[in-house]
Nucleic acid binder design. Structure first.
Lengths: 355, 355
DNA sequence: GTATTTTACGAAATCATTTTCGTCTATTTT
DNA sequence: AAAATAGACGAAAATGATTTCGTAAAATAC
């Protein structure tokens, strides 16, 4: 009977030895030092002798001591964490951006929280509001297509959290941004279509209010103007986030009596939908319709026909954004001087726009 | 002079009102209650009168009070956060999985930390070790291709952190997993190639030691056996994580005197590399070489030729994994009963395997 | 030899929250 | 009317790490 009890206790002890997180207290008991001394030793404080430091480091290593992030966060009012807020993740552009962000964050020993808004304004507001309590030291965000007011972001900025906007940025707010040369590359894209013979170029977009949509549309319009082609509002096609409904919209567009002879898709998914619709309607690309698109598709050159793209340096956008954010975090720059970084996209000609 | 000073103070106050996080103390002062009463009121404790609760709730709402996650985490020893550890993010499969995970996490009001191992074992170990300090309440992981020992994961499990493995799981460890019917679908894939006339089918993989590689190879071998085709080890092509070097490997393979007439790519990127190499070597798909691949490429049917795929239910894998994890977190299931969930992939025939 | 400084460490406050344990008043029970 | 109890709240401990301050002992200065 007693033996069983004994084993039982042994077992419980075993469980507890598994479960027990080693903290400064345990470490200090093990070393015969005070908690404060151990803490200081681990921080390489001048107050601790070299010998003691060695002992402490060795024991910490041996017991695999990891400081409790919550205790540390509470005390230092620092989370060592950043938030990334994006519309969607199953998207070549955004997943590449995250790749870049993660690279930098890992170097800086920072943790990355990811939030998806699914292009829903309510989600964005709620996410941002949940970030006002010191959970993160900084925020990287690309606005959702529905974003009307930026009050939630201004509030967050006012609480002292550094924010970097990338790609989809707010127009009415003083802030740091990382973008690409949307106007110029859209100008080039449109020009490219016209040089390939297009006269009626449709501009496909997801949300009119998005900064990228506006800038890309301006580039499109400027190019039209250069080639003395009248701007036709009917060729601005507003799509949304649902592929099925987008295909219906595009089907309608490509079944018009006066069908466009060129498509400029301001986001990748609309080009893909266009391809599907063309397959469906037996419209030949590029003979009957030329297509160019903003895209980070790795298979662009394997499509039938290969797709001419404007490719944004997505990975670099992530990298630059993160680096800028960490600079702001370090400097505790509370919005005095705002940075604006602009990277260059590249136009890659392929068969979908061949003359 | 005094006026200026006055304004200066006003300004400083403004700054502080911006910066100051509202906490229980401020809230309690505002309400003329004690900190503990406010805390209890916010938790709807029976000790607090209905009227007081209303007052507290109203004030908390008004001042947009958000409890400090670090204080709460420290006190309750709970993070309301999970970790997702994956080899890479710029990958259709993994980004879809994350999409599914995020969906569930958002419902449960959990935060999601993402870590990338870049198929590097050292990274994986270091990441997992950094998760031993209570930073997260649970871990979702897909092993990196290099993972040799799983000691780091066993250690983590021993500290009481629930872990779910998805897709790439360990073979030598008792654990909960979410996978797909890799053996069966690989069997079908190989059979599909043989029914299309292939006799020499190469099997492309990234890491031989990965669970998915092994299961998929077994399915491949079983199908060969069924059709009385001798297994040829020279047709097992071990690639890696670098597209350039993979293309070199594949170029060599497809330049052999006895060239394979079928390719079974166990991961998407190898199929894409194969397409590039075929373009380069002017090998016609499917006439000279048929290709099937595990893939979540949304443009598979737009490729030239369209790619026959085995498509894993990536989003559902993420969803199921997260749901399973949350069940374990709730039950504080310390590894008594391990769950094994297997979902079905689907073979989608397209032109790359047409007879 | 005394005074001062340096060295090396410990005690305790602090961060914001949760939670246990009192405590006081008002009400009910006996 | 005295005793017990319920209702509503506050004080304080506890969570784990950091940091300020205090203090012995040892080393140095005068």
């Amino acid at each position: 009977m007693f033996y069983y009890l004994h084993y039982c206790f042994l077992f419980i002890e075993l469980i507890f030895s598994f479960m027990s997180e080693i903290n400064l207290k345990k470490l200090s008991e093990e070393l015969g030092l005070s908690i404060s001394s151990v803490s200081k030793a681990l921080h390489d404080s001048y107050e601790i002798s070299t010998e003691t430091k060695k002992r402490v480091l060795a024991m910490a290593e041996k017991l695999n001591y990891q400081p409790n992030p919550f205790a540390r966060g509470l005390r230092k009012n620092k989370s060592n964490t950043i938030a990334v807020v994006i519309p969607e993740i199953a998207n070549n552009f955004f997943s590449l951006v995250i790749d870049g962000i993660q690279l930098v964050a890992q170097q800086k020993e920072y943790h990355v929280l990811t939030y998806l808004t699914h292009e829903d304004y309510i989600n964005e507001v709620s996410t941002i509001n949940h970030l006002q309590c010191g959970r993160v030291d900084g925020v990287l965000i690309s606005l959702c297509g529905e974003t009307a007011s930026v009050d939630h972001l201004i509030n967050l900025q006012h609480t002292g959290v550094p924010i970097i906007f990338f790609d989809r940025i707010p127009e009415t707010m003083e802030c740091s941004t990382v973008t690409t040369d949307d106007y110029e590359s859209s100008f080039k894209a449109t020009e490219h279509l016209m040089l390939a013979g297009c006269k009626k170029i449709a501009f496909l977009c997801v949300s009119r209010f998005l900064s990228i949509t506006q800038k890309r549309m301006l580039g499109y319009q400027a190019a039209l103007q250069k080639y003395k082609i009248a701007f036709d509002p009917k060729l601005i096609i507003q799509c949304n986030n649902d592929n099925i409904s987008n295909q219906a919209i595009l089907k309608k567009l490509l079944s018009r009596k006066v069908r466009p002879d060129g498509i400029f898709a301001s986001v990748e998914k609309l080009a893909i939908s266009t391809y599907y619709v063309c397959n469906d309607l037996k419209i030949k690309i590029p003979q009957q319709l030329k297509i160019i698109s903003f895209s980070n598709l790795r298979t662009a050159s394997l499509l039938s026909p290969s797709l001419t793209t404007i490719t944004q340096p997505a990975f670099e956008i992530g990298k630059e954004s993160a680096e800028l954010l960490f600079r702001m975090i370090k400097k505790k720059n509370l919005g005095g001087y705002m940075n604006k970084i602009v990277l260059q996209s590249s136009l890659i000609e392929r068969n979908s726009t061949v003359k």
